[in-house]
Design a protein around this nucleic acid. Structure first.
Lengths: 209, 209
DNA sequence: ACCTGAACACCGTTCAAGT
DNA sequence: ACCTGAACACCGTTCAAGT
């Protein structure tokens, strides 16, 4: 008891243990985290003054740190964009049980934002206007985040009841089911986004000519 | 005490009271909800066997019930789409303090899904293929939901530190700040989405010619 | 500085008892 | 069927005490 000769805890260990718990259980508690670390709850507060909310932030930084935008360094923007999108989705799906915990706050950590240098660079070189690029990145991330949430959603139940509009019923029947439904929506979204961006780029370049 | 002559509670009253609490405080507790209703906590469980999770579902249905896709009934799809997007964002922003509570589960309630008959009808008449329309709706909603989360996010802090990539720094400096930043991202997203959908529609119609 | 041990106020849920 | 009153196990956070 008392102060140990070498500290038993640091922010890194706490973050790693928390992510482990969350991957296993989909959630975590402070007592559970303390037990996992072989420590009393109060000890955690010494390193993470923000308490549970700050632990969640640690988890978020760890999970989103796997998002990779470096494809923009070596590929044309319209080829890099789908890879970026995919890495974002994969990063969240790798911790799918934790998505509900992570997604409630958008990715705004300065350290994480810095990772997007490649994305910003790729879009600049392509010719997108500087004052719109961060908006484009934000809009894209909004879609990615929503898609991540959709990816853990239960499949839509098509109520065969008579109160469903005919158009909706036809559309639901023609749509794929299960996991395929989610993938289709994601791929449509990425494609639509890239095509829409291409048009925005063309309009910008036409103005400059 | 004992069974009252007329029931004091029903699902509707519980949902309304819960939404009120959440609008005021950004969250709610079962004891707090019971107090608001002038009732003991256990009484709530008699009407909502699913407990707190089901109360949240009631709130979600109420909030998302304000999403309006009927613009597709009277306008061309590319004019209706932005109005639909806006109504979705408004519905969530009207309960902005509750977004974190609501957004963790996507809108998949059968009753809510039925509202999208207008959207499905508009996209069908425009010529989008039946088997892709639900994917389009899902992708669009993913973006709307992400944008709603972004709309309550704190403004991005531009760290003047030297470790920020130059491209990112330039882009962050050129971007609008505060609320304007969010609106720009939302509008770019909607525009990009509509333009991308137009391209998808053109490709579809060209195949059919 | 870093941890233990114990405490506090609070939470969600359940259950017997009443009409 | 519908509510009360009380209980249970648990949670996040704090604080004095120890080294």
């Amino acid at each position: 008891m008392g102060r140990p000769r070498t500290p038993k805890l640091d922010r890194d260990k706490i973050g790693a243990a928390a992510l482990n718990l969350v991957d296993r259980d989909g959630d975590f508690t402070m007592p559970g985290l303390a037990a996992q670390l072989g420590v009393q709850v109060a000890a955690i507060y010494h390193h993470i003054p923000g308490g549970r909310a700050e632990v969640i932030e640690l988890i978020r930084v760890r999970a989103t740190g796997q998002v990779d935008g470096t494809a923009f360094d070596r590929l044309p923007w319209d080829e890099a964009f789908p890879l970026w999108a995919r890495s974002f989705l994969d990063a969240f799906r790798a911790h799918s049980t934790a998505i509900r915990l992570l997604a409630t706050e958008p990715v705004r950590d300065p350290g994480i934002v810095a990772i997007y240098g490649s994305v910003a660079g790729g879009l600049r070189r392509a010719g997108f206007p500087d004052d719109q690029i961060f908006g484009i990145i934000t809009a894209a991330e909004s879609f990615f985040l929503g898609a991540a949430l959709d990816s853990v959603a239960p499949d839509v139940m098509v109520t065969p009841g008579g109160d469903t509009p005919a158009d909706l019923e036809a559309v639901l029947e023609a749509a794929p089911t299960g996991a395929e439904r989610h993938w289709q929506a994601f791929e449509i979204g990425v494609r639509v986004f890239v095509d829409g961006l291409r048009r925005l780029l063309d309009a910008t370049l036409a103005l400059q000519h």
